[in-house]
């Protein structure tokens, strides 16, 4: 898991300034994105990028390989779609409810999973996510194989119609930037410093007096909540929550996005999400090839490019300017 780039211009030296620069840059890039790709794909890149950032908080900064994040993304998607469709909540309330549900689930699964580390941790999160998957397969309110079709996107705050893609895109971009800001703030705060300390040497963090279990649980819950924010947004954007959202391959995809972009880098997950979503879109018609190519990407990045695209580039940049 790569460290921070060692050389940055002086004005970017403070974390606060860098966070702000990232936000401004991402807002600008987000404004230009619909000029390059069609709106639905642009929105997919944003919500999946947010999902990957949330996952990176756990995997990149705390060093915990979770393999069940589809549960948080998917549960939030279902809760949001259900409340919007059946109860008639406005989109923003649906998204908030979905996020809250994912946070609650994250607190429970996290409480269990952080009892172990390493591969055990991965398997526990995977197994518990399967419980959520099979629950949603069988629960009467989740509509089984069909999933929940929400119908029209509704009106934000009951006022702004999200039916047209431009307003929907702006809302998605705002959610994405807010989520990214939260993750980035967490990572660059004293809290984030403790997380990386736990990642690098947990016994030492314990000996310094930190209650590492509390930090891990908090990070896990936060990661689950932001994953839920992404999943609930997905339900509004695509007007659909289905079993694909909770399937374990979704947990694999978010992991792959982070691996492609760069584990433990601020922008890597977004780059990885953009690569992956664009690839899925381009290969949508080829069916089974997508799975084989995804597998090849896993193998290739693990063996040849472990710091990911962003990690490798910033490494090169740092060497050049030294």
């Amino acid at each position: 898991m790569s460290g921070k780039p060692s050389s940055t211009p002086a004005w970017l030296a403070s974390p606060r300034a860098r966070e702000l620069a990232y936000l401004v840059g991402l807002a600008a890039a987000g404004a230009l994105l619909p000029l390059v790709v069609y709106p639905t794909l642009a929105m997919k890149i944003l919500y999946f990028g947010l999902f990957a950032c949330a996952y990176n908080l756990l995997f990149g900064y705390l060093g915990l390989l979770a393999f069940g994040h589809a549960a948080f993304f998917g549960l939030a998607s279902y809760v949001c779609a259900h409340l919007v469709t059946v109860v008639g909540l406005t989109p923003e309330l649906g998204i908030l409810a979905g996020t809250a549900a994912a946070a609650a689930l994250g607190a429970v699964i996290g409480w269990l999973a952080i009892k172990r580390t390493g591969l055990y941790f991965a398997m526990i999160t995977l197994a518990l996510a399967q419980v959520v998957y099979f629950y949603l397969v069988q629960a009467p309110w989740s509509m089984g194989e069909d999933g929940i079709q929400t119908g029209p996107r509704g009106k934000l705050f009951g006022v702004i119609s999200l039916a047209d893609n431009t307003s929907m895109y702006v809302v998605t971009l705002v959610i994405f930037l807010a989520g990214f800001a939260i993750v980035n703030r967490a990572v660059n705060s004293p809290f984030g410093e403790v997380l990386t300390a736990i990642r690098d040497n947990e016994p030492r963090a314990v000996s310094l007096g930190y209650d590492t279990r509390r930090f891990k649980l908090l990070a896990f819950t936060l990661s689950a909540a932001i994953s839920g924010l992404a999943g609930a947004t997905k339900a509004i954007v695509l007007q659909l929550a289905n079993l694909g959202d909770v399937h374990f391959s979704m947990s694999g995809e978010v992991l792959l996005a982070v691996l492609i972009g760069g584990i433990g880098t601020a922008l890597g997950p977004i780059v990885g999400a953009a690569v992956l979503m664009t690839m899925f879109d381009a290969l949508a018609k080829t069916g089974a090839w997508v799975q084989a190519i995804q597998g090849a990407l896993f193998v290739g990045f693990v063996l040849l490019l472990r710091s990911g695209v962003v990690g490798t580039l910033s490494g090169l940049f740092a060497r050049k300017t030294r």
Partner: peptide, 28 residues
């Protein structure tokens, strides 16, 4: 063999990738 000396996570990710490749290709 190439991931023995790396963090356990990489062995897990590598074998996930291998499984997806084999399953995907046979599916094709």
């Amino acid at each position: 063999r190439r991931v023995y000396d790396l963090d356990h996570a990489y062995g897990f990710l590598l074998t996930i990738g291998l499984a997806m490749m084999v399953e995907g290709l046979l599916h094709v």
